[in-house]
Amino acid sequence: MAAGGDHGSPDSYRSPLASRYASPEMCFVFSDRYKFRTWRQLWLWLAEAEQTLGLPITDEQIQEMKSNLENIDFKMAAEEEKRLRHDVMAHVHTFGHCCPKAAGIIHLGATSCYVGDNTDLIILRNALDLLLPKLARVISRLADFAKERASLPTLGFTHFQPAQLTTVGKRCCLWIQDLCMDLQNLKRVRDDLRFRGVKGTTGTQASFLQLFEGDDHKVEQLDKMVTEKAGFKRAFIITGQTYTRKVDIEVLSVLASLGASVHKICTDIRLLANLKEMEEPFEKQQIGSSAMPYKRNPMRSERCCSLARHLMTLVMDPLQTASVQWFERTLDDSANRRICLAEAFLTADTILNTLQNISEGLVVYPKVIERRIRQELPFMATENIIMAMVKAGGSRQDCHEKIRVLSQQAASVVKQEGGDNDLIERIQVDAYFSPIHSQLDHLLDPSSFTGRASQQVQRFLEEEVYPLLKPYESVMKVKAELCL
């Protein structure tokens, strides 16, 4: 049975990233139509530049190519590739079939990587351009969430054990800070992308030097003109047959890092959902379990974690691919890159769409948070109580021993009897502590235990987050809708 299948058929496997999760716009960027249309555009740009620099290419040939950029006979191309065992030459023939007058000058002087690699770089750039505003929107939604809850005390956790208090907004800023680093890295790697350009079979530009009869300047002009037509500021000066596969490492490393950030955020949300302090959106008709109707599973956060793990592992592909590119190139890269580049971007696209949807509907339960604080705060307040007693004339050592005994009794009630923490009640009825009984409410005010959390939130948002989001103001209103 021949390899390949009808990918629109229910009898043929289709990647869930495309069929179930990723956005239509990201799927289109990695589609065959987008790819092969870009090949034709690159052939047109090459012909236009070659004509401008004096090669015998007519206006009629150029116009014929322009008129057929979208006229792609995919069936013919597939048949040609089956016959020739070469995808680029299959599309040269297919393009030439609908451009008979231009057929002889299509791909003039070029090698397969002229269309293959340059198209990949265009796709990487455009895919990054799709991700950047999506990530900015996630940051914006979380920034709104953090600002609104900047002063809401909550129990902090280290080692997932109760620690000092923080605020809900401050905790959210930990998430935002990681995503801001990801946004900066995505922008950097996007701006650092260079075009492969017009380089020939081993990167020496020998074929173009021959076409222009040894004119170095025209060869350099050709490279520059096509690079500018493709919208790049610069091209690699040095290439082998391909652009260095280190570029793929750079791009997928940034995406993998984004995956790590999203995994951490969504894990926190899942843990908070278990504590009943916070939940992701839950639709009115949504079913959490087929057997347990009360369940409210954090399905979206779980999906993000599941896909983020996949995204983090994909960076190993370009690392290994770059390491086995012998001399000017081997074909070890080809099949692998067809999979890992598309999957990385479709996965990143999915987790950003999902995280935006989550961040637009996060639900906080202040009463649950308050109750958990009441359970733990008495123990945390013991040092403040000791200091207040010393100020009232008591002995630190005597007070410490009193607190120690009462704390152990209260802990026994919590752990052995399943009761509430009654340390404060014990202190309130103990005559030894009568000098500070009137101060206990103040000493137990949760806001006095959150330090500068709310001020940190305000400063972080104003100095770091809002300036970073400013270039994306025009796209901030787009909502994230999930079908599944």
Results as ranks from 00 to 15, higher is better:
Val364Phe: 07
Glu283Ser: 14
Thr313Arg: 04
Pro378Tyr: 07
Trp39Ala: 09
Glu383Trp: 05
Thr350Ile: 14
Asn384Ser: 14
Leu55Val: 10
Thr267Glu: 03
Val363Gly: 03
Arg372Gly: 04
Lys276Met: 05
Gly197Arg: 01
His159Pro: 00
Cys172Glu: 01
Gln455Ala: 11
Leu222Ser: 02
Ser306Glu: 04
Asp11Gly: 08
Arg270Thr: 01
Ser359Tyr: 13
Ser407Trp: 03
Lys199Tyr: 02
Asp182Gly: 03
Arg338Gln: 06
Leu135Glu: 06
Asp59Glu: 12
Asp317Cys: 07
Glu64Asp: 13
Leu46Thr: 01
Thr94Tyr: 07
Leu341Cys: 15
Phe345Tyr: 07
Ala411Glu: 04
Ala230Met: 01
Phe282Val: 15
Glu370Pro: 05
Asn353Met: 14
Ala47Tyr: 02
Ala388Ser: 07
Arg40Asp: 00
Lys402Arg: 13
Cys483Gln: 15
Leu165Asp: 00
Thr154Tyr: 03
Met316Cys: 08
Gln375Leu: 05
Gln164Gly: 01
Thr330Ser: 10
Leu135Gly: 09
Met292Tyr: 04
Ile427Phe: 10
Ser434Pro: 06
Arg396Val: 03
Val457Gln: 04
Ser412Tyr: 15
Glu463Lys: 12
Ala78Gln: 12
Thr154Met: 10
Ser395Trp: 04
Gln416Tyr: 14
Pro298Met: 05
Cys399Asp: 05
Tyr432Pro: 04
Thr239Trp: 01
Arg20Val: 01
Gln455Trp: 13
Leu469Met: 09
Lys75Met: 11
Ile106Pro: 03
Thr244Cys: 13
Asp59Cys: 13
Glu383Ala: 02
Val262Phe: 07
Thr242Tyr: 00
Phe95Ser: 02
Gln409Lys: 12
Leu121Trp: 00
Ala150Ser: 11
Thr111Leu: 01
Ala431Glu: 14
Gln416Asp: 15
Ile386Thr: 10
Glu70Ala: 13
Trp175Leu: 01
Leu406Gly: 07
Val247Met: 10
Pro162Trp: 12
Glu302Lys: 04
Thr201Val: 07
Val88Gly: 05
Thr119His: 03
Tyr466Gln: 13
Leu42Ser: 03
Leu468Gly: 08
Lys35Thr: 14
Ala308His: 07
Gln285Trp: 13
Arg337Met: 03
Met278His: 05
Ala103Ile: 10
Pro446Ser: 07
Asn421Leu: 07
Gln416Trp: 11
Arg14Gly: 15
Arg329Cys: 02
Gly200Leu: 00
Leu84Asp: 13
Thr158Val: 01
Ile57Leu: 07
Arg234Leu: 11
Val219Gln: 01
Lys101Trp: 07
Leu352Glu: 03
Arg141Glu: 14
Gly169Arg: 02
Pro10Ile: 15
Phe145Arg: 04
Gln221Lys: 12
Phe30Asp: 03
Val115Ser: 06
Thr267Asn: 09
Leu44Met: 12
